[in-house]
Design a protein around this nucleic acid. Structure first.
Length: 198
DNA sequence: CAAGTGATTAGC
DNA sequence: CTAATCACTTGC
């Protein structure tokens, strides 16, 4: 096991970290200790204070966004559209409300468990979206405020992709956000079959 | 392409 | 208190 250290998450450059997260493995053991894991292939950066789309825009501090102000390496989970959870990694030092949304992973270990939770479908649909991967990996709101250096969920340093292997583009589902909707703050692995949109 | 779903938030 | 909104998914 090769857990990413605190320093990985507390660096200044959130956009760089969003790219560095590609290729890392998200591991969430079941109650009986089986490793359910997937490699991150798609992320989006949310730059807190200045980013109109971020829940923490203008450093808005509410009951929900409180977690985004925690130290880097904390997990921020929120519930959306009455049905889905979204899994975010808090970035930066304490009180810097930046986060990276994990949008897609490639299933690695115990794929049968993910199939059970998601229902029968092609493997490439199992975790190719932020709501889907939460179901497949068993993430719910009790993971909010968990620490990635703890034992409930963590990231391992599987591999690092080079700039040539990474593509970027505008973020999904935020067309209302005027100039911030255009920012190329979504990153994915170019030839992965498991990203949410081609 | 549209509906479904309920927490969260801003605005009275 | 009420109403509008929403970093999505699925099945027409």
């Amino acid at each position: 096991m090769n857990k990413l250290p605190r320093e990985f998450y507390t660096r200044e450059d959130t956009l760089q970290i969003a790219q560095d997260l590609l290729g890392k493995t998200l591991v969430i053991p079941t109650k009986s200790g089986e490793r359910v894991s997937g490699m991150i292939v798609e992320t989006e950066a949310y730059l807190g204070a200045i980013d109109k789309v971020a829940h923490s825009y203008q450093s808005r501090r509410t009951k929900r966004t409180e977690t985004m102000f925690a130290v880097g390496g904390t997990i921020y989970i929120f519930f959306i559209y009455g049905m889905y959870f979204q899994f975010n990694v808090v970035i930066g030092k304490m009180d810097v409300p930046h986060a990276v949304l994990i949008r897609a992973v490639e299933p690695l270990e115990n794929i049968e468990i993910m199939r059970q939770r998601r229902g029968e479908m092609p493997d490439k649909n199992l975790t190719s979206g932020p709501g889907k991967l939460c179901i497949a990996l068993g993430i719910d709101k009790t993971f909010n405020n968990e620490d990635l250096l703890g034992n409930r969920v963590w990231l391992e340093n599987e591999k690092t992709f080079s700039v040539e292997e990474i593509a970027s583009g505008r973020r999904i589902g935020i067309d209302y956000a005027e100039e911030f909707a255009e920012k190329p703050w979504r990153f994915w692995v170019k030839d992965s079959l498991f990203v949410s949109r081609k």
